[in-house]
Computed example of a mutant assay.
Amino acid sequence: MPARPRPDLSPSTLPDLPPGLTTRPLEKTDASAVHLLIAAQEMADTGEVAIEEADIVSDWARPSHDLGSRSVGVLDGDELVAYAELMGVDRADTAVAPSHRGRGIGTWLALWLQDLGRRVGSPVIGMPVPQGSPGDRLLEQLGYRVRWTSWVLKLPEGATIPERELPAGHVVRTARPEELRAAHDVLEDAFLEWSVREREAFEDFEAATTGRPGFEPWNLRVVVDPEGTVVGVSLVLVSDDGTTGYVDRLAVRRDQRRRGLAQALLVDSFAQARAHGTTTAELSTDSRTGALGLYERVGMVTTSTWVNRAVELDPTTETAH
């Protein structure tokens, strides 16, 4: 039997948005407006803001991301009140201004993402939402299941992580420019042990890391063995207000684990952040990594819990309306 043709879905197949709202693809100049939108949603849902404008700018700098065809903004007049985008095969991000909740915009965005996912061949799409938030409840009602749970952890102000002695000949230091590709390999090899995605292109990593606004060489930390080979990596960032050091990624090569390298990288990363003026330290981990216990044992405490909710897509099924 011949394969059924995939339907040519477009925004016209979606339910209507509330009167007065318009849509358009996002542009890179929208980064500030998207940051303010996400920040307002995070404050309403969790009582604190974690998003940085640099997070958005660095994501949108990835050569593989076609913002124009993978995003939509919802506007009330000239004000951006909601957005959605699909990055890669299955990573979706959305936000709706608290002032515009309860009007069906979140449902429209979820259906828009499903239609986009079908058009680009995604078998599944998922997005992170604070556990128990309005977004979490909405996605549950729409049939999105929990794929994994994530936790944001903080090192209490004034606390320090116990130091671990490195194996003989190993050194923690700033990555050298010529080690960027090796650092990327260590990170990707480790993350792909449990992640269900394609390998990140080095060019995307480079653009989102060294091309991130405010990036400085000291942000990328490595452990090298006696031969000078990179065997562990930490990417530590500083918040826009300069108060928080955030470990964005941390990985150790599989054959070098259980030797204290991860803890040594944490000690170094947070010490470097403190040396650059921060007073608190944070990171996040999820249930796929099995690392939550490690961070709790060194004194970090959970400040918020998120779930990644996802829905499988049938490429032959159009959105009902």
Rank of each mutant, 00 (worst) to 15 (best):
P2S: 03
A3E: 00
R4E: 04
R6L: 02
L9C: 04
S12E: 13
D16W: 13
L17C: 10
P18F: 11
P19M: 14
R24M: 14
P25L: 11
D30K: 14
A31V: 06
I38V: 14
Q41L: 08
Q41E: 10
T46A: 14
G47Y: 10
E48D: 12
I56P: 07
D59Y: 00
P63S: 00
P63L: 01
S64I: 01
H65K: 03
V72M: 13
V74E: 09
L75K: 13
Y83W: 13
E85K: 09
E85R: 13
L86S: 02
V89P: 00
T94F: 08
L109E: 10
W112S: 09
D115F: 02
L116Q: 03
R119V: 00
G121Y: 00
Q131M: 05
S133L: 06
V146K: 04
V146P: 02
W151A: 15
L155T: 11
G158R: 03
A159T: 08
E163L: 06
R164A: 04
R164N: 03
E165T: 07
G169H: 06
A175I: 06
P177M: 07
A182N: 09
A183I: 06
D185P: 00
E188T: 06
E193P: 04
S195C: 04
E198C: 00
E200W: 03
F202Y: 12
G211K: 05
G211A: 01
G232A: 06
V233R: 07
V236L: 10
V238I: 11
D240V: 01
D241Q: 02
D241C: 03
T243C: 05
L250G: 07
R254E: 10
Q256H: 11
G260T: 07
L266M: 15
V267S: 14
S269Q: 11
Q272L: 14
A273I: 04
R274P: 09
R274I: 05
R274K: 12
H276A: 08
T278W: 04
T280S: 13
S284Q: 14
S284P: 08
T289Q: 15
G290N: 09
L292A: 15
G299Q: 15
S304I: 06
W306R: 15
E312R: 02
T316G: 02
T317K: 08
A320K: 08
